[in-house]
Design a protein around this nucleic acid. Structure first.
Lengths: 123, 123
DNA sequence: ATAAGTGTATTAAAACAATTAATACACTTG
DNA sequence: CAAGTGTATTAATTGTTTTAATACACTTAT
């Protein structure tokens, strides 16, 4: 299911986090699905269970999964995931707007940037 | 002119950078003004000249000062500083808008957040 | 109840990155 | 050319991150 790349400069837990994040966001792992246990996953990859735990903790922070003691880790509901991501986006945008305001940038200028960037065609 | 705080967990060069940044942005150090030389500053603070050099490099990256070999470091023109800061703001905002678009957030939703945050009264 | 599964917490070792210093080089001016 | 200036290279130190070792706690099935 997952392959580690020891050439990759990124830490192991980050490689694991990224791959599960993709699988969940793409829908390959549907809400409610159980993830491999930290021990089973650690066995498969021949690393320490704590490294899997670290990866799962990251995913939990992002609201993508939730743990149940003694049972396992499960993919969160799609609606929860979307909400969490939107909340984070809103927070970042708010902070940025605040910064811009302090710099003396007008609301109209900000709106113009948003509009132009949004209209831009993307591949 | 500057006092180091060894209780402060932040690195020395960061403390120095921050204080000069404030002095420049507040206008206490006007455009064209010469900063203390790296050696003079290092003597005063009893640290290595390279640490001052590091601080000055940060300020240069931010567009706040510019160096002249054999002469010294000088405060940049106000118009340049403003432009640099705006360009950076615009880049960050663009990237954030792009991210939001990918998440499926509409232009109207973004506009709403910007508007609401901008109107907010600040102390 | 107990065994075998699960997540969690603590601690420490190892690897890595950031910070500061030592030192030498290069440019500018008088 | 001497004394000022910024700059580059290297290395020692310090701090942080990453991973592992190990023990604890909860859940379920038998």
């Amino acid at each position: 299911m997952i392959i580690l790349d020891y050439q990759d400069r990124r830490p192991l837990y980050e490689q694991i986090t990224e791959k599960f994040r993709m699988l969940i966001l793409k829908g390959a792992l549907p809400p409610g699905e159980k993830l491999p246990s930290v021990r089973q996953m650690a066995m498969e990859l021949s690393i320490n269970p704590n490294t899997i735990q670290r990866a799962y903790m990251e995913l939990e922070q992002e609201g993508l999964i939730y743990p149940v003691k003694g049972k396992g880790n499960f993919v969160a509901e799609a609606s929860r995931i979307v909400k969490k991501r939107r909340d984070e986006f809103e927070l970042e945008l708010s902070q940025l707007v605040c910064r811009g305001k302090d710099m003396g940038i007008t609301e109209e200028e900000i709106m113009k940037i948003v509009s132009e960037k949004y209209q831009e065609v993307s591949k």
